[in-house]
Design a protein around this nucleic acid. Structure first.
Lengths: 211, 211
DNA sequence: ATGGCAATACCTGATAAAATGTATTTTTTA
DNA sequence: TAAAAAATACATTTTATCAGGTATTGCCAT
C-alpha cells in the first residue's frame, strides 16, 4: 500500500476548491482528505486528524492566510503549507514565508506549475510559481525607488482634499492653523512632484494611497 | 438529439476554469466548447464559432471584462454573458449590467448558486449571486438617479486635469481658447455638483469615468 | 425644421492655491 | 539619548481657479 500525502484545501471560493481538487486528483501520491472555506474550520480539523499538506488561499475571511500559517506551523511544523492568491504583493509573500510557509503560487499559474510546485514542496523545497519569482526577485529596482508613503497627517489632509475641502475647511476640521495645512499641502505636492491637487488626487487614488 | 448551450469560459486562472468546467459538466444542457485565459482570444473565437453563453472573469489582463462584454454585445447581442469576480464593487457590477451583461456572480458563491444563476440567465433573466444582491441593493436612492456622463470634450478635459494640466495647458493641448476650457471646467463641476477639481477627479476615478 | 445639447468663445470680480522662505515643537527611531 | 522626521505656525507674492453672466455655431434627433 502506497503512502499518500493527506492534503487539505482551504479557500473561500468553492469554484477554486473544485479546480484544485480536480488538478490534484491527477497526482498519484496526493489524497485530498478535506476541503474548507475558512481557516477556523481547518484549525479544528488538524487537531484531531493527520494532515501532510495544506493548500491555502491567503485572502480568507475572519483569519487571513499569513496568520493562519503561523498558527499552524507553531503546533505542527511538519505540515507543508503552500499559499495561494490571485494577486501578489511582495511583502505579503515574504511575510508568508517568514511565518513558515513552504511555497507560494499565484492562481494564474498553469497546471504544470501547480504540479511542479506541489511535488517540490513535499520534497522539502521552498517553491514559488514563475510570476511570484519575478515579483520577489526585484529587490533593487522596485524596493529602493518605491514611493514614499504619506504621513498620518498628510493622509488626513489628502483625504479631505479629495472630498473637495478648501485649506480653511481642512484647518477647521482638524483644528489646525490655516498655515499648517498650507504647509502640509506644499509638502505633499513636493514629495510626489505633483503640479497641483488634481494630479495629486489622481496619483494617490491610482496607487491606493487613500483609505 | 438535445440542443446544448455552447458555452465558453474566460478566466486568467487555470484553476478557476477547471473548477467551473467541473461544475458545468454536471449540467445536462450546457456544453463547454472552449476555455480562454484572455479576452482577445475570445473575441477571435466568437467571430468564427457559435457561442450561446459566456462566463467571464471581470479582472482580465489586457482587456477587462466590462469592456469585453460591451464589445461582444455590440456584435452578438444574443450571447448570454455572466460576469464573475472575487470581490465586487457596486459600480463595477452596475457598469457590467449596463454594458449588456446578463448576470454577475461572486466567486465565493456556492455551487447551487452558480447553477441556479446560469439556468435563469439562459432563460432570459438578469441574475446575481446572493452577495452581489446585498451589495447592489443597499442605496437605492442614490443610484436610481444615475449619474449623467461626460461629453467627449468634457472627458478630454477631465483627463488632462487629472494629469495636473492647468487651464492654459489644456487649451494649448486641445487647440482651444483658454476661455472655452474654462467654460467646460465650470460645466463639469456644475454637472456633478463638485466644489473643485480635486473632488471632481476623486469622483470620476472612483466611478471609472476616466479612461 | 426646430428645439435641445454640445462645443466654442468672451468678461470680470472675488477667492483660493502655489511658490518661497523661515522657524518651533513634538514624536519617532536608530 | 541624540538625530531625524513629522507636525506645527507665520508672511508675502504671484498665479490659477471659481462663479456669475452672455452668446454664437454646429449637430442630431424628433
Amino acid at each position: 500500500m502506497i503512502m499518500k500525502y493527506k492534503t487539505v484545501i482551504v479557500d473561500d471560493h468553492p469554484i477554486v476548491i473544485s479546480g484544485i481538487a480536480g488538478l490534484l486528483s491527477e497526482l498519484d501520491n496526493i489524497e485530498i482528505v478535506e476541503k474548507f472555506e475558512s481557516g477556523i474550520a481547518l484549525l479544528d480539523y488538524i487537531e484531531d486528524n493527520k494532515v501532510d499538506l495544506i493548500l491555502m488561499d491567503i485572502f480568507l475571511p475572519v483569519i487571513n492566510g499569513v496568520d493562519l500559517c503561523k498558527t499552524i506551523k507553531q503546533k505542527h511544523p511538519k505540515i507543508v503549507i503552500i499559499g495561494m492568491s490571485s494577486q501578489s504583493e511582495r511583502s505579503l509573500v515574504m511575510q508568508f514565508i517568514q511565518n513558515g510557509g513552504n511555497g507560494y503560487i499565484l492562481k494564474n499559474a498553469s497546471f504544470d506549475e501547480f504540479k511542479n510546485c506541489i511535488y517540490k514542496a513535499i520534497e522539502g523545497e521552498i517553491v514559488f510559481s514563475e510570476e511570484v519569482k519575478t515579483i520577489i526577485s526585484q529587490p533593487l529596482s522596485e524596493d529602493l525607488e518605491r514611493i514614499p508613503g504619506l504621513s498620518r497627517r498628510e493622509r488626513d489632509i489628502a483625504l479631505l482634499l479629495s472630498q473637495g475641502k478648501s485649506t480653511q475647511e481642512i484647518a477647521d476640521d482638524l483644528f489646525l492653523s490655516f498655515l499648517t495645512v498650507q504647509t502640509h499641502r506644499r509638502n505633499i505636492l513636493q514629495k510626489y512632484k505633483m503640479k497641483n491637487v488634481a494630479e495629486l488626487i489622481a496619483f494617490l487614488l491610482k496607487n491606493n494611497m487613500l483609505n
